[in-house]
């Protein structure tokens, strides 16, 4: 099987990372650049760590397509995608408004869908590439007060597995990274996730570091293990 990121002519491969301005997305930008990728980052606020940074709402398919066109022109056609843009809200089920549900689905599932639609045809035409969706351990095991978040993250698993089956013969690898509670600004101070009593219940005793998610995403993008259709979950032992 070919190595998805590497261009045939030996030039640096190009990756797109959404949610690139902070947290897991930012860690992915840094790790991929350190491994020789040219990285285009997008986020709702402009980042400064990628080779090309742009403001894009990934829930907007037109904006995503325009962004990928720009990346292709300025850096080259992307052969790697990390769909990391996302957010979490803790709301009980009966208080989740239809608008909140739609937005949650639009950013997480829409983000992966729109990025894939914008990049997959060129990967198939070139005979290789890799896509990584950042989900959550909650997509595997569920959780309280975040049914819209869990639904949206769970949807990524179904889309990823089907894309993997559909794209395998074209040499495109599609996988999920499902982090456990990760030490980023998204885990607010004062929440249960940062409570020492909670951390003591984890087999590893500590939060996941964003660099671990970035290493995992970078391994999946490299294609070295030829993995596809998988959910890889560095989760500190929250879901075993």
């Amino acid at each position: 099987m070919s190595t998805p990121g590497r261009d045939h002519d030996g030039s640096a491969p190009v990756a797109v990372v959404s949610g690139a301005a902070a947290g897991i997305g930012l860690a992915c930008v840094r790790e991929l650049r350190s491994q020789g990728w040219l990285v285009a980052g997008c986020d709702l606020r402009v980042g400064d760590a990628a080779d090309l940074d742009a403001v894009v709402d990934v829930a907007d398919p037109v904006a995503v397509a325009r962004f990928v066109d720009r990346v292709t022109r300025e850096l080259g056609p992307p052969t790697g995608v990390v769909s990391a843009a996302g957010y979490v809200e803790e709301i009980p089920l009966d208080a989740i408004s239809p608008a909140a549900f739609r937005r949650m689905l639009g950013v997480h599932l829409g983000g992966l869908h729109h990025l894939t639609r914008a990049t997959l045809p060129a990967m198939v035409a070139r005979g290789g590439g890799a896509i990584v969706a950042v989900a959550s351990e909650l997509a595997i095991a569920g959780g309280e007060d975040a049914a819209h978040y869990v639904t949206a993250k769970g949807a990524l698993l179904g889309l990823t597995r089907s894309l993997a089956a559909e794209s395998a013969s074209a040499g495109v690898l599609v996988n999920v990274v499902a982090p456990g509670p990760t030490d980023t600004a998204m885990l607010a101070a004062g929440t249960v996730w940062r409570d020492p009593a909670y951390l003591a219940t984890l087999p590893t005793g500590a939060l996941v570091r964003p660099e671990e998610i970035a290493l995992t995403a970078a391994f999946l993008l490299s294609g070295r293990g030829a993995l596809t259709g998988q959910v890889v979950s560095p989760n500190a032992g929250t879901v075993i």
């Binding site: 456990g180 590893t204 500590a206 671990e212 890889v232 032992g237 075993i240």
Partner: peptide, 12 residues
Amino acid sequence: RLPSLTGQTLPC
């Protein structure tokens, strides 16, 4: 470098 990756089975 992946202390948080534990208890997982990865189909290869």
